[in-house]
Design a protein around this nucleic acid. Sequence first.
DNA 1: CAGAAATGATAGTAATCCTATTATCTTTGC
DNA 2: GCAAAGATAATAGGATTACTATCATTTCTG
Lengths: 228, 228
Amino acid sequence: MERLLSGLKIEVNPNLYVKDPESSVLGKKIVEQSILLIHERGFDNFTFKKLGGEIGSNESSVYRYFENKHKLLLYLTSWYWGWKEYRLVFSTANVTDTAKRLEIAIDVLTRSVEKDSIISHIDEVILNKVVVNEYSKSYLTKEVDKENKEGFFAIYNRLVHRLKEMILAVDPAYPFPSSLASTILEGGLHQHFLKEHFTSLTECNDKVRPFDYFIHLVFSTLNKKDNA
Amino acid sequence: MERLLSGLKIEVNPNLYVKDPESSVLGKKIVEQSILLIHERGFDNFTFKKLGGEIGSNESSVYRYFENKHKLLLYLTSWYWGWKEYRLVFSTANVTDTAKRLEIAIDVLTRSVEKDSIISHIDEVILNKVVVNEYSKSYLTKEVDKENKEGFFAIYNRLVHRLKEMILAVDPAYPFPSSLASTILEGGLHQHFLKEHFTSLTECNDKVRPFDYFIHLVFSTLNKKDNA
DNA sequence: CAGAAATGATAGTAATCCTATTATCTTTGC
DNA sequence: GCAAAGATAATAGGATTACTATCATTTCTG
């Protein structure tokens, strides 16, 4: 699977960039280093000038790839969710037991990324941490409706829908499948954040994973069709 | 109860302000108008200069009350959670049935504020919307650990703990009470956000409340001691 | 090797996020 | 009722950010 994935290009909405960063060495460096720099200093303290310095280039070159840092964040997080989507689709392919399939899905979507799968120049372990800390900032804006219409959140939306379908496959009568799916995705990030910064607000720690919490939550709220 | 609450001052951490905004007319105007302005333009586009203009004053006067806009946001959201805490404590006082008490708690904590209770100069309906859109930004920062140690999130932490205790009262053996409590609080805000901006990611709408979703979720995951 | 394309370097503008200073207005004690 | 103290307003200015524009240089390609 690693091999298969390594040939794949994650397709993000082309309107998120001015010039495709995958199309050049500099573009890849921009993406690669921006992840590290955002992780290191936080998105709020991240600037194109600092990034330019970091990659031995300068501000103006970065602007030739991304309009502004908001679009860059949208690009990075879209890429992340696209990557997760591949993981999800491959991991659940040919799994016919609906409960088992949902369990795998929850595992893929709430587990923190542990080792660099070396797909590309992108360090998924660090990108995962960036998503935990910064994803909300990509949609908590005044432009969210306009940007959503433009499809900037299309991959994330699709991912929630996929999860929703897997929930419905287990319990077609469950009345809140979309809300539950979005709770798993957003709540998964949040529990990882709490684990790092507000340890008294979660049971999750080195031993207990968000996965354990969500599995318990989801399977007690769903009425399983069959208990195979 | 309205009358009782109207005499109360919500106590927030004094290190969040330079000078207590409750101590003067200008201070109250700053708080009142900042809520409206953040709601209108979004926190990212909000500046002390614009706020100064709005209240017929200027930048420098605002700085005498708050160090920066981040601290102001912490002040506003702390006030909001303090206000919710009062609502919670009063609404659940003397309710001995643990399941009923938890239900009331979930109602208080996930319901969107519908009418101005006229406690003060603060418009809680708008403040609620500000919290939905901006609360995450108050803790998704590089300074979160330092600020948490200083007690800037003390009220929110306490609120999660209160909810956790109410969950445990219903099911003392439930293994994830803190995670569930934080999911209800954070997830409640998130479902309200989705209802406004990503309608396909939630079942919540004008008819279905986040309350309905969370009640179903919580009571199916907990094993009730007694089904009174 | 010439022309095109990409990148690098520099400059400049407007806005933001402050700090400092001074002027005015308001309150309070006497 | 007035003087001192305290609060507020007005203005200026510095550092940083978020860009845009221009031109020089390097690299790629036919």
